[in-house]
Amino acid sequence: GKFLTLEELRELVQPSMATLLVVLKWLQGHGVERCRSVTTRDFLECHMPARVAEELLPGAEFQRYVKGQQSVVRSPRPYSVPEELEGHLDFVGGLHRFPAERRVLSRAWGDTGQPGGGGGGGGGRVGFHLGVTPSVLRQRYNMTGGDVGMVPNNSQACAQFLEQYFHQADLAEFMQLFGKSFPHLSQVERVVGHQGRGKAGLEASLDVEYIMSTGANISTWVFSNAGRHESQEPFLAWLLLLSNMSSLPWVHSVSYGDDEDSLSLSYLQRVNAEFMKAAARGLTILFASGDAGAGCRRVAGGNHTFRPSFPASRWVEVAVEGLLGTGG
């Protein structure tokens, strides 16, 4: 099909001159000058003191809330915008919602195949095995040693969040151990964003090593996205970064997601718009939908309901799921 260049996409989605003038007049009238836009000109990110934000958004009263190591600035009160902005303003984020509490579930499997390990009251030694290696996956998908990237302009990328980073040295060692049966690359071509120091993250290492094992011998980028959105992945910031880059890999893989009901509707709609912009450019984005089928919200009394995973629930990208099966 015929896809749009970034410049053609800008012509399609950029706001009218009237909208730009109204919004800029509103911001500059309150002394807001520290703003940055994206190439498509349909998003502004502005920095200002809380006092100025309260003047911009009448009714808002910003306070700092601290819990443990977390600190956020939010307004407990509703806000309004001037009537002249009606029809020009689409999304205002980061005002009301508090970060969702994240619980880490750790599970170790012992020799008996049951949680807790060992079958001896939880005191047994947990056993581990290599499990699914690249050769297992390639065999499962009927891939031979010749099923690798051969076209120079093939490209792929994966995105990392939540302070997860990979190490090039780990990737090279992984390929030395598990990539002997197929041609492969041992280095990521480009890292976009900040790579933190310290130990490599499990999720980041897994994503990079396995996309370069199944999509072997293909130029690979890694988008390393720092920061959080309400303690969760800053998907919108990552998509805005893509909106500012004219040359990108065609395929993007993301192994992260949030409960859809943990995010505001306006945020979901804005992220959805960015996905549509990416699709218009011909980008294919694969999102993990979880490892346990349809999500479930457990309610007291047993009236459990479905709990969709975002962004896999969106219709503008491809959702991919892995299921953990147990032998009968």
Results as ranks from 00 to 15, higher is better:
residue 55 E to F: 03
residue 129 H to S: 11
residue 244 N to R: 13
residue 167 H to D: 12
residue 136 V to I: 00
residue 212 M to R: 10
residue 192 V to T: 08
residue 183 P to D: 05
residue 24 L to T: 14
residue 271 V to P: 04
residue 207 D to E: 15
residue 117 G to R: 05
residue 279 A to K: 15
residue 323 L to T: 05
residue 90 D to M: 07
residue 192 V to C: 11
residue 131 G to N: 03
residue 127 G to K: 06
residue 233 E to P: 04
residue 31 G to L: 13
residue 11 E to T: 12
residue 147 D to Y: 03
residue 149 G to C: 01
residue 319 A to R: 02
residue 32 V to N: 11
residue 81 V to Q: 00
residue 127 G to F: 07
residue 190 R to H: 07
residue 138 R to G: 01
residue 185 L to A: 00
residue 33 E to P: 01
residue 16 S to N: 14
residue 201 G to F: 14
residue 240 L to E: 14
residue 287 F to T: 14
residue 237 A to D: 15
residue 125 R to T: 10
residue 271 V to N: 05
residue 116 G to V: 03
residue 321 E to V: 01
residue 12 L to H: 08
residue 188 V to S: 01
residue 271 V to L: 14
residue 266 S to H: 15
residue 114 Q to W: 07
residue 147 D to V: 04
residue 226 A to S: 14
residue 115 P to S: 06
residue 328 G to L: 03
residue 308 P to D: 14
residue 134 P to A: 05
residue 190 R to G: 01
residue 294 A to D: 15
residue 48 M to I: 07
residue 196 G to I: 12
residue 6 L to R: 11
residue 236 L to F: 11
residue 111 D to L: 10
residue 104 V to N: 09
residue 321 E to G: 05
residue 151 V to P: 00
residue 319 A to C: 05
residue 155 S to V: 00
residue 236 L to T: 06
residue 30 H to M: 12
residue 70 Q to I: 04
residue 9 L to C: 13
residue 8 E to V: 10
residue 81 V to H: 04
residue 299 V to L: 15
residue 309 S to C: 11
residue 197 R to C: 11
residue 145 G to Y: 00
residue 37 S to F: 06
residue 142 N to D: 08
residue 34 R to H: 09
residue 160 Q to Y: 00
residue 234 P to Q: 08
residue 195 Q to M: 13
residue 192 V to A: 12
residue 7 E to G: 08
residue 105 L to R: 08
residue 39 T to Q: 09
residue 164 Q to Y: 03
residue 57 L to K: 11
residue 287 F to S: 15
residue 90 D to R: 09
residue 129 H to L: 03
residue 295 G to H: 08
residue 310 F to T: 05
residue 54 E to C: 07
residue 254 V to K: 05
residue 326 T to F: 04
residue 30 H to P: 08
residue 7 E to K: 14
residue 10 R to F: 12
residue 144 T to Q: 02
residue 119 G to E: 06
residue 36 R to G: 09
residue 113 G to H: 02
residue 296 C to P: 06
residue 288 A to E: 09
residue 108 A to F: 04
residue 117 G to K: 04
residue 175 M to V: 08
residue 280 A to W: 13
residue 252 H to C: 07
residue 58 P to T: 05
residue 79 Y to V: 02
residue 30 H to S: 11
residue 205 S to F: 15
residue 177 L to F: 02
residue 320 V to G: 04
residue 155 S to N: 01
residue 174 F to M: 04
residue 93 G to D: 07
residue 269 Q to S: 10
residue 64 R to C: 02
residue 269 Q to L: 14
residue 325 G to A: 08
residue 60 A to K: 01
residue 179 G to V: 03
residue 179 G to M: 00
